[in-house]
């Protein structure tokens, strides 16, 4: 336990290695959300299928696209957006909410950050798989190239984890951060081709909206492999790599600078 007296980054690392603890917390939090509910995690399957099939068929008609392509497009878009939005909004309160533990026992904050992102990732993955299965039933063919989606998912997880790390430290200091993030996400949702095809806004001097939008790139690196069986354009991978480096630096700064004093803000 004396290793905790080291730097904040060290303590962050110690927390990441406490796998049994954050797995336990994550399991607990999933269980308590669905306690006494009849379908349990089945609700997430149902929820994402209803959206993917319902909206997929409707919008496919409106945009004159084949439902076979548009159901996975909208289903995956919904799952990815749900993960990003939920993990970021919840992320602001992670450290604050952990105070009932951290005021009593020395636990690295990274335990709670990992737990929170993991829980949302579990929900995402269920939605992802249900959409995938529905799309394959509709006639979409899985290929070896579809496996590129896993790379995209890894990037998405890493980026969300780093963003949540920064937000959780800032959110403990500034309690209205989650409201601010909520507003930003609302605008971002309109500006991101989650439920409409990207082509709709291209060629109208609005290209910057999709070209400099990390969420759009995340959508691309997961959707393109699933739907077309190929990796996304190289641009998206390099753009995301740059953003990830920035996110890593901000996450390290916030934990190193704020981590020490944060216990007095809780």
């Amino acid at each position: 336990m004396s290793s905790f007296s080291g730097s904040q980054l060290q303590s962050f690392w110690v927390g990441l290695k406490m796998t049994d603890l954050w797995l336990y917390f994550a399991k607990n939090s999933v269980q308590s959300r669905f306690r006494r509910s009849f379908l349990g995690l089945g609700w997430i399957v149902l929820n994402s299928l209803a959206f993917a099939l319902g909206a997929g068929y409707l919008w496919a008609q409106i945009f004159q696209i084949e439902a076979r392509e548009f159901v996975p497009y909208i289903g995956l878009g919904f799952a990815i957006w749900g993960f990003v939005a939920a993990s970021l909004t919840d992320g602001c309160d992670v450290i604050f909410a952990s105070s009932s533990f951290t005021k009593q026992i020395r636990i690295p904050y990274s335990v709670f950050i990992t737990q929170s992102v993991l829980v949302h990732f579990i929900y995402f993955f269920i939605a992802f798989l249900s959409t995938l299965i529905a799309s394959y039933i509709l006639g979409l063919a899985p290929t070896l190239g579809s496996l590129w989606a896993l790379v995209g998912i890894l990037i998405m997880f890493t980026m969300s984890f780093l963003t949540v790390t920064t937000l959780s430290y800032l959110g403990a200091r500034f309690r209205d951060l989650s409201h601010a993030i909520g507003s930003i996400l609302q605008i971002l949702f309109v500006m991101t081709p989650v439920i409409y095809p990207a082509e709709v806004i291209s060629g109208r001097n609005l290209d910057w909206i999709v070209n400099f939008n990390p969420v759009n790139s995340l959508l691309e690196v997961i959707r393109t492999p699933v739907i077309h069986g190929t990796p996304a354009e190289l641009y998206h991978y390099s753009f995301l790599a740059c953003i990830t480096v920035i996110l890593l630096l901000t996450a390290m700064c916030s934990s190193a600078v704020l981590g020490r004093r944060i216990i007095f803000w809780l």
Binding site: T102, K103, Q104, I263
Partner: peptide, 8 residues
């Protein structure tokens, strides 16, 4: 709490 390492 200081001894326990909770407060820096």
């Amino acid at each position: 709490k200081v001894i326990a390492g909770i407060y820096p």
